[in-house]
Amino acid sequence: MKPLPSPLDPWPGTESHPDPRWQALYTAILRGNEQMNLTRITTPADFWEKHLWDSAQGIRPYLGNNEPWRVIDVGTGAGFPGLVVGILHPHWQVTLLDARQKKIRFSAQVIADLRLDNVTTLTGRAEVLGLTAPHHQNYDLVLLRAVAPAPEALSYGTPFLKPGGHLVLYQGHWTPAQTEALNPQKYRLKLTQMDAQTTPLTEGVRHYLHFLGNFPATADS
């Protein structure tokens, strides 16, 4: 098959010279799966749609932003969406956070192999690190994908967020009743946008909830 295309391009891709890092990332995940349980999604098309495409959809509203944002992927697991974000936005500083050392060691090796100088790793529990310097209220963009049920995920991610910063919650099925029950004001967040996107290959639906940090800075931020 052809090398994997960018998640911003159509499948199966028409570029004469696609960025080789997408294929290299896929190969690294397959290799990592031999040592640990990273993902059950291993066919090229499924990997592209469910990991690459999905990761990119969450940051579509910010793709034109050329500011040197600090970004944190909370509960990164196998490195998604953070690795995809780091490739798409080389001028952003992206941190991959996870409590599981084995997965962080894997991500660190991928970062080195792909020479992603703008991506770093961090090992620890979000509920602890988010409340302490230098991480408390220190990120322009917080990403939460497959971390925990939505209310719990917001409680993990919000402490990392700068006042006026952006937080993206990646979700599958989502209803207006869930939006109402989520009560973002409880987390000092304002829901500014909710995108519902149909997946290009399997025609499922993914939701991307965008929040704004609606709170003042604290003394240690």
Rank of each mutant, 00 (worst) to 15 (best):
residue 189 L to N: 01
residue 130 G to M: 07
residue 151 P to E: 05
residue 128 V to I: 15
residue 171 Q to D: 04
residue 126 A to E: 12
residue 219 A to Y: 10
residue 204 G to Q: 13
residue 47 F to D: 03
residue 180 E to M: 03
residue 39 T to Q: 13
residue 26 Y to R: 04
residue 157 G to C: 03
residue 124 G to D: 11
residue 141 L to W: 01
residue 49 E to D: 06
residue 33 N to Y: 12
residue 61 P to Q: 10
residue 203 E to F: 01
residue 53 W to K: 09
residue 160 F to T: 07
residue 214 N to A: 14
residue 180 E to C: 00
residue 121 T to M: 03
residue 215 F to S: 00
residue 135 H to T: 02
residue 43 T to Y: 13
residue 15 E to K: 13
residue 194 M to Q: 15
residue 52 L to V: 13
residue 216 P to S: 14
residue 48 W to T: 11
residue 121 T to C: 11
residue 31 R to N: 13
residue 173 H to C: 02
residue 49 E to V: 01
residue 213 G to Q: 04
residue 4 L to Y: 13
residue 190 K to W: 02
residue 149 P to N: 08
residue 182 L to S: 07
residue 185 Q to D: 14
residue 88 L to M: 10
residue 137 Q to T: 13
residue 90 P to T: 12
residue 106 F to W: 09
residue 122 L to Y: 04
residue 31 R to Q: 15
residue 178 Q to R: 10
residue 56 A to P: 03
residue 207 H to P: 06
residue 160 F to N: 06
residue 196 A to H: 12
residue 63 L to A: 09
residue 124 G to P: 06
residue 182 L to I: 12
residue 83 L to K: 07
residue 188 R to D: 13
residue 75 G to I: 09
residue 220 D to I: 15
residue 95 T to H: 11
residue 59 I to V: 15
residue 98 D to C: 08
residue 185 Q to N: 11
residue 32 G to A: 08
residue 13 G to T: 08
residue 54 D to Y: 03
residue 200 P to S: 14
residue 132 T to L: 14
residue 74 V to M: 10
residue 72 I to H: 07
residue 99 A to D: 08
residue 148 A to E: 13
residue 148 A to D: 12
residue 108 A to P: 00
residue 193 Q to H: 11
residue 155 S to Y: 00
residue 139 Y to A: 01
residue 126 A to I: 08
residue 80 F to S: 06
residue 34 E to R: 15
residue 114 L to H: 04
residue 19 D to C: 09
residue 68 P to V: 12
residue 135 H to G: 03
residue 14 T to C: 05
residue 41 I to D: 04
residue 63 L to K: 05
residue 56 A to I: 03
residue 82 G to K: 07
residue 45 A to K: 09
residue 178 Q to N: 07
residue 169 L to C: 06
residue 41 I to G: 03
residue 187 Y to T: 02
residue 106 F to I: 02
residue 168 V to D: 12
residue 22 W to M: 00
residue 28 A to W: 05
residue 167 L to H: 13
residue 51 H to K: 07
residue 76 T to W: 05
residue 150 A to T: 04
residue 99 A to T: 12
residue 172 G to D: 04
residue 202 T to D: 10
residue 196 A to N: 15
residue 168 V to F: 07
residue 102 K to E: 04
residue 152 E to L: 02
residue 170 Y to Q: 05
residue 85 V to L: 02
residue 78 A to D: 11
residue 146 A to G: 10
residue 34 E to W: 00
residue 81 P to E: 14
residue 161 L to M: 03
residue 204 G to Y: 05
residue 113 D to M: 06
residue 212 L to N: 05
residue 185 Q to G: 06
residue 63 L to W: 12
residue 87 I to V: 15
residue 65 N to Y: 01
residue 97 L to P: 03
residue 203 E to K: 08
